[in-house]
Design a protein around this nucleic acid. Structure first.
Lengths: 168, 168
DNA sequence: CCCAATTATTTTAAGTATAAAATATTTCCT
DNA sequence: AGGAAATATTTTATACTTAAAATAATTGGG
């Protein structure tokens, strides 16, 4: 169970002790979830109102913006941490809207290359600018000198969770 | 724009400066999102595999567990930060499965009271225990002495975002 | 008292998400 | 070369999510 701060084995604890032990972890999880939901729902609302766009569509464009020569379709689910099946209709619509192209590779016809169009780049830049400004606005009241510290903590948290996920 | 750390008005900055300024906020946001997604998807997977349950269904039971006398249906969307329409099918299914009851109030027939059943309480306790253990497992590699600090930072972050949202 | 505004909830339409099965293509083994 | 395994992607079924419109019930003002 690897609860470093406790030496007593879990099996020796009664229900109340165990619940108390889980409390700190649960509290951290609930705070994390609350912060993310709060920001995410506001960003989603603004994307819809200002650009009639959704976050997943923006996320796809954000990935392609860094890849001038395009990206193998299969890279997207990995980078965006979503399932492959999920992306199919999202990519379909971005193609239909003219923001990206999808072309089959000549070397391997299972593989498709997606690439942003000029139109896509144009709208992405506008949205990215607003996205940055919205975040700046939402996070303005958080002390600037504590940004880096919090980012560092979250980096470590992420690494710790990744490690824990790889163990079994 | 309220970027406290900078005195130069945004309008006076060129595009590159502005992008640099947004970077810290964006990085924080991406870390937050990554941590939450990582944990959330693992919890969802385990809920499904171990209990054939989803997180929203668990979340509803978690709210009702604290309210022995039941809860006005309209309280759930507020507490869970989801839309009211979203809850209708979730509550429907929990009622159909026998984990909660839904009864119309006699004083105001628009209002419904939802209340956990004995069966619901039973399954909730089992799931809550696993939920705590899963979190403890996922967060085990994060230094125990930094939990409270991170929770505190996230509390402040949440408050800051809430403040920013109320301003307009 | 009645009807307009308010409140609680559900329905609808569109999109997002997953897991698992299906399809298509390529690679690798013998 | 032939077929099995692997890989890339789509399809299917199910569930969640929201916004906006619809429904139903109550309250309050004239």
């Amino acid at each position: 169970m690897a609860l470093a701060k406790e030496s007593t084995p879990v099996s020796a604890k009664n229900e109340t002790d165990q619940e108390a032990e889980y409390r700190a972890q649960t509290r951290l999880w609930l705070r994390l979830l609350a912060c993310t939901s709060l920001i995410e729902s506001e960003l989603r609302r603004r994307f819809r109102e200002e650009f009639d766009f959704t976050m997943p569509r923006f996320d796809v464009l954000a990935q392609l913006d860094r890849e001038p020569s395009g990206l193998v379709l299969g890279e997207l689910p990995k980078r965006l941490m979503v399932s492959a099946g999920n992306l199919t209709p999202i990519v379909d619509r971005l193609v239909a809207d003219g923001y990206i192209t999808r072309t089959a590779s000549n070397l391997d016809r299972r593989v498709q290359i997606v690439c942003m169009t000029v139109e896509g780049r144009k709208i992405f830049r506008r949205m990215a600018k607003s996205h940055g400004a919205w975040l700046a606005e939402l996070l303005a009241d958080f002390p600037a000198d504590r940004f880096d510290g919090l980012i560092g903590e979250l980096d470590e948290l992420k690494a710790a969770v990744r490690d824990a996920l790889q163990k079994p």
